[in-house]
């Protein structure tokens, strides 16, 4: 009932505002006519008061006071508008970050790639980059050699892929022969022996390097610095008396 009356009152106010007469409006709601007449009459009294205005003197006085206040209290702070960077640097930054994220994730994914796989060249490149920045390049090369052997074993059923792995292995071994200090040569020798063992066990003895240790590396430091690689022909030319550390069976060495 109350809700009905409230709605009727609201509707009547709208009808009156639209130009309808009071009597016409009350005729729409005969059941509420008595209450509506009283309420609408009161509303009309209120609306008449909407003509009330402050005096011009007050308005001018208050304006003057406001202007003085604003002059005494300037707004020193800036609007809280978010500072936007120019579009191009934002785009470039976004693209750069996206590229870095892509490179990192691809590199991580490539570490499990095998010879012949799409990401295998990426794996080799990432290892090359690692080698360039590593504080112990020899250590990186030892790991690379071990990885190539593992790859060759993993793809032993695929002759082409195995060939790729072994080619890469021989390149790493050639690189390992460039390290001349005795301590590194000792690490290389141990690693190559382990890898040779792995290859022999897998029936790939033809690919296994033959590690020659005719002179103990630690016994004669003076001679230990002498280049001793066989796979590096250039080294042999430079020092024809050198004893090769590593040599491969015919057809597989460099």
């Amino acid at each position: 009932m109350t809700a009905d009356l409230a709605s009727a009152l609201e509707a009547c106010l709208e009808h009156l505002a639209a130009g309808e007469t009071l009597e016409a409006c009350l005729a729409r709601y005969p059941q509420h006519a008595r209450e509506l007449r009283a309420y609408l009459g009161t509303a009309a009294q209120l609306e008449k008061a909407s003509q009330l205005r402050p005096t011009p003197a007050f308005k001018a006085r208050a304006r003057t006071r406001l202007m003085a206040h604003m002059a005494a209290h300037p707004r020193l702070f800036k609007m809280r508008m978010p500072r936007r960077r120019p579009l191009f640097p934002r785009l470039a930054l976004g693209m750069g970050l996206a590229l870095i994220a892509l490179a990192v994730s691809t590199t991580a994914l490539a570490q499990s790639a095998l010879p012949g796989g799409t990401l295998y060249p990426w794996k080799l490149s990432s290892e090359q980059a690692w080698h360039m920045v590593a504080p112990d390049p020899a250590g990186v090369d030892i790991i690379r050699a071990d990885r190539r052997v593992d790859e060759a074993l993993a793809v032993s059923g695929d002759e082409e892929a195995r060939g790729i792995a072994l080619d890469e292995y021989h390149k790493v071994v050639a690189a390992l022969e460039q390290y001349k200090d005795p301590a590194t040569q000792q690490r290389v020798e141990l690693a190559l022996k382990t890898e040779a063992g792995k290859l022999n066990n897998a029936g790939l003895s033809n690919a296994a390097p033959v590690v020659q240790v005719e002179t103990p590396l630690t016994a004669t430091p003076a001679t230990a610095n002498t280049p001793r690689t066989s796979s590096g022909a250039k080294n042999q030319e430079k020092n024809p008396t050198a004893t090769p550390l590593v040599k491969f069976p015919d057809g597989l060495g460099h």
Partner: peptide, 13 residues
């Protein structure tokens, strides 16, 4: 608001 308006007009009247 409509209900409040009605009660207010009622009281004011």
């Amino acid at each position: 608001i409509r209900a409040l308006q009605m009660r207010a007009l009622q009281s004011l009247a």
